[in-house]
Design a protein around this nucleic acid. Structure first.
Length: 295
DNA sequence: TGACAGGGGGTGT
DNA sequence: ACACCCCCTGTC
């Protein structure tokens, strides 16, 4: 099979502040998305929906290219996927960093961090896989799901199965993709979504609290996963996912020792304001880096 | 090189 | 609180 021809490298529409390598790595492989892989050349190869893109950083500018067969559709999808229409300088500046030295430090630490705007349904699938799993394992599950059950994007790369397709897959076959107890949740969720056409699209369009409540009605989806789906798959920057990492980080950095997740959620909304999820992502990135440095 | 614990970014009961 | 699954990682 011949290697697919790739489009020329092209700049992504410019927007400030500039990208940096750490921020790009954290954005693509820090727990928002699970289908980006660093290439030997240092660029990143990512798959979503029917798109395949390679991105790289040159002189603080982001460039992309795609297999010729999907270059048009990928190029059209990229600005939305990378939230290129958002003025991140203004968004970040509106966070309460002036009165929060720790937040200010995290913002300085990852100047290129973004919140991706991934396809809603795929984001739900990714985070249904995420319970008590680390990023490498989630990526492995999704890679298996795509390779065994997803349609071809270009030779060598497959998309994730749609929810309609997932509804037709026996639970045992899902388990074979290393999903463990999550296979049952995904199977049941797929049956529900398949039986309620338009439900996902409607949910994505609802106001934040209503959308979250609807997601939480799905088997295997609790508050944390619902918030991740809304933050990374619907652009709801007010969603503030509280997991054990953020629980520990907030305890250590803001003195919230012994606080329960619901209390930390409330604190986050009040303290960080309407873009609490954006602030959370910077805190999260900083804690991850600290943990990695520690070994 | 291989076996063996231990624990894991959550949800449901 | 504990089960749910089972892969990853560190360790011997």
């Amino acid at each position: 099979m011949p290697a697919p021809a790739w489009s020329d490298w092209q700049p992504l529409p410019a927007f400030a502040p500039p990208w940096d390598a750490a921020g790009l790595a954290e954005t693509l492989d820090g727990g928002q998305a699970f289908r980006w892989n660093r290439q030997p050349t240092g660029s990143w190869l990512g798959l979503w929906a029917g798109c395949a893109a390679e991105v790289r950083l040159t002189n603080d500018a982001l460039q992309w290219r795609a297999p010729a067969a999907v270059a048009t559709v990928t190029g059209a999808a990229l600005p939305r996927y990378f939230a290129a229409q958002e003025d991140y300088g203004a968004l970040v500046d509106s966070l309460p960093w002036r009165s929060d030295p720790h937040l200010a430090r995290c913002l300085r630490e990852f100047p290129g961090l973004r919140i991706l705007r991934q396809p809603f349904g795929e984001t739900l699938l990714g985070f249904l896989c995420s319970a008590t799993k680390q990023i490498v394992q989630i990526k492995q599950m999704l890679a298996l799901l795509a390779s065994r059950h997803g349609g071809k994007i270009v030779p060598g790369h497959r998309r994730l199965p749609t929810w309609s397709e997932l509804a037709e897959i026996p639970e045992a076959d899902l388990r074979a993709c290393l999903l463990g107890f999550r296979a049952r949740y995904i199977h049941q969720t797929a049956r529900f979504i398949a039986g309620h056409p338009g439900w996902l699209d409607e949910t994505e369009a609802l106001p934040y609290f209503e959308a979250k409540a609807r997601l939480c009605s799905l088997p295997g989806v609790g508050e944390k996963i619902a918030d991740c789906v809304l933050l990374f798959g619907a652009g709801r920057l007010e969603a503030f996912p509280v997991d054990v990492w953020i629980l520990k980080a907030m305890a250590a950095r803001y003195g919230l020792h012994g606080w329960k997740p619901a209390q930390v959620t409330q604190f986050g909304r009040v303290h960080f304001g309407p873009l609490a999820g954006l602030a959370q992502q910077y805190l999260f990135a900083s804690e991850r880096r600290a943990a990695q440095a520690k070994g």
